[in-house]
Nucleic acid binder design. Structure first.
Lengths: 159, 159
DNA sequence: TATTGTTATACTCTATAACTATA
DNA sequence: TATAGTTATAGAGTATAACAATA
């Protein structure tokens, strides 16, 4: 009589539910890393020092640059990263892992893999890989263009 | 030398990025519905009146019951839903769609489908279906047991 | 003039606890 | 005594704007 679609077939509901579960278990796995799951992502990003500036990291992680300042502040206080001025652009600062940071990241990554596999537990191994791959492709595509919202708005106008 | 895994192969990064993209485009699609994407989910949930109480809806949507009060308040002020006392348990209140709410939901659902397909644009039709199905299965499983965090903690202790 | 990073301020969102009415 | 819903308060998180240094 009403709508044929259930909330539970809604992409937004599934995304939100899985995201909350992920954050719940991830916060356990990163226990102690300042900034929680996001602090971990900063560490992981900093592990590839070539990626560089705080701004670039902030954009890829989807946080404001002011938030990135706080995150790096706390990670630096914990002795996990250090800021080094970029010789090529002295406005920018490169965020580099310390030895302690590298060791910590290695440990957390191991725990994260366990936790992620547990989250994907209801799926078969090949299905887990498929989900990771498909999600990654959607994420990479939506990151490419800032105008995702604009394009969606256009799509709406056309309907 | 450091970690072999890139941030972009990280499940958390992909989930967060897709989630943000979804919220960005969904907020456009639900334009006007109080509570944004979450208000839409409440409407969608209320469309199946049999699901019932505010508390049940709050738990399935992953929000606090106090937040649900505000959400339903705003939807009721907008004339999209109405609260009816549950005859079987007079403590509980059923959230029912008004005629205006039903019409609005129908419209928003149509826009949502467009927006979701646009979000999943980089995937082939069969892949989109696969992603939806896999995400839904993970979501349903993680919703079944509250003790997801506990089990993950156990998994960590074992490593 | 535009951009990176920082800081301070204000705002929004969320969690906590206290209260009521029912069970 | 326990639960559904509401309300008020406090806290965390976030966005905004202004600033300094550099391009």
């Amino acid at each position: 009589m009403t709508s044929p679609s259930d909330v539970e077939s809604d992409l937004g509901w599934a995304l939100g539910t899985v995201m909350r579960s992920y954050l719940r278990v991830a916060d356990e796995a990163v226990a102690g890393v300042p900034g929680g799951a996001r602090g971990y992502q900063v560490l992981s990003s900093a592990a590839r020092g070539d990626r560089g500036s705080q701004l670039a990291m902030a954009q890829r992680l989807g946080v404001d640059r002011t938030v990135m300042t706080y995150l790096v502040d706390d990670l630096e206080k914990a002795g996990l990263v250090e800021r080094k001025p970029d010789p090529a652009d002295r406005r920018a600062r490169r965020v580099l892992l310390t030895d302690a940071g590298r060791a910590r990241l290695c440990d957390v990554e191991r725990r994260m893999r366990k936790v992620e596999e547990h989250l994907l537990g209801p799926l078969e191994p090949t299905e887990r890989h498929t989900l990771r791959t498909l999600l990654r492709r959607v994420a990479l595509a939506s990151g490419e263009h800032d105008g995702a919202a604009c394009e969606a708005a256009e799509a709406l106008d056309r309907c």
